[in-house]
Amino acid sequence: MSQLYVSAEHVLQGGYHHATLRRLQEPNTTIEPHNIMYPVFLLEDDNAKQEVASMPNVYRYGINELIPVLKDLVAKGLKSILIFGIIETLPKDPTGSHADSAQNPVIRALPRLRAELPSLLLACDVCLCPYTSHGHCGLLTDSGAIDHAASVKRIAEVALAYALAGAQIVAPSDMMDNRIKAIKEALVSVKLQNQVSLLSYSCKFASSMYGPFRDTMKSSPMSGDRKCYQLPPGAAALAARAAVSTRTTRTTRTLYINFNRIN
């Protein structure tokens, strides 16, 4: 008997394997805890807590400081978080080696979060900019342009590492074309396609409003900007084209960023 092939773009079950995800598949006409994601900024120092100067009352946390905060919020109704990893002492390099290394704070924290907060839906931001020495969201050619194929391959590797560590959603925010298909194929390769969802940034506009996030993440580009791979502001037709061309199977809305899609 020939082996059946699982086509990555036709997998639906990854979009509703968790109770909160099932709620997110419903029409979201009200603002409730299940359709709000709480952003978490995770430090490599497990016992650290740092105030973010550009965002009052927002903090970066090490995992030992973060867990008590999350337990209190879950008791008050929090359903899901989006985790952003920050490195300060681990070295950054052109390929973002520590985006998926064993020392990465997100990879180290995921098993503890799954164990101590089993009901909490865990999403992980997938991007290279906090880990690359040049601060861009993809890999660069010798001329400084985005190396598209290499970037997509690397981003899929990072997303898979987070999934294997315990992430229930991987959220690629890099805006490299075709990385959704690559990530879904990576999940299929290890039989995680029905246990891990994708939250894809189908339409992400270049904007100065990301400034506080980049300050928080210590991820601003060392040179140039991200306008060559984030959509031009006001390009509604291009955004619609990007949304349609994204290789997804099922959509929902969240209150994190417009045009996000969950698979």
Rank of each mutant, 00 (worst) to 15 (best):
M1H: 14
S2N: 11
Y5G: 00
V6R: 14
E9A: 09
E9H: 13
Y16L: 11
R22D: 10
R23Y: 07
L24Y: 11
L24C: 09
N28L: 07
I31H: 03
P33V: 05
H34D: 12
I36V: 15
Y38T: 03
P39A: 13
V40M: 07
V40Y: 01
L42C: 06
L42S: 11
L42Q: 04
L42R: 00
E44A: 12
D45Q: 15
D45R: 07
D46P: 05
D46S: 14
A48N: 03
K49S: 09
K49C: 13
K49A: 10
Q50C: 10
Q50D: 07
E51P: 00
E51S: 10
P56V: 06
V58C: 08
Y59K: 00
Y59D: 00
G62R: 04
I63W: 03
D72T: 14
L73I: 03
K76F: 04
K79P: 01
S80Y: 03
I81Q: 03
L82G: 12
I83S: 09
G85P: 02
E88W: 04
L90G: 02
P94S: 14
A99D: 02
A102M: 05
N104D: 09
P105W: 03
R108N: 08
A115F: 02
L120Y: 06
L121Q: 07
L121E: 07
L122E: 06
C129A: 15
Y131M: 00
T132F: 03
H134Y: 11
G135F: 11
L139D: 02
L139V: 15
D142Y: 02
S143W: 01
I146S: 04
I146G: 03
I146E: 03
H148Q: 14
S151V: 01
S151E: 08
V152Y: 12
A156S: 11
E157W: 03
V158W: 05
A165P: 04
G166Q: 07
S173K: 05
D174E: 11
M175Q: 13
M176C: 09
K181G: 08
E185Q: 15
A186Q: 01
A186P: 13
V188K: 06
V190A: 11
V196R: 12
L198M: 13
S202K: 02
K204T: 07
A206R: 02
A206C: 06
Y210S: 12
G211W: 01
P212Y: 02
P212Q: 05
S220F: 05
G224P: 13
R226C: 10
C228Q: 14
Y229Q: 07
Q230V: 05
A237F: 07
L238K: 12
L238Y: 08
A240P: 00
A240R: 08
R241N: 13
A242V: 01
A243V: 12
T246G: 06
I257V: 14
N258T: 08
N260A: 05
N260G: 10
R261D: 13
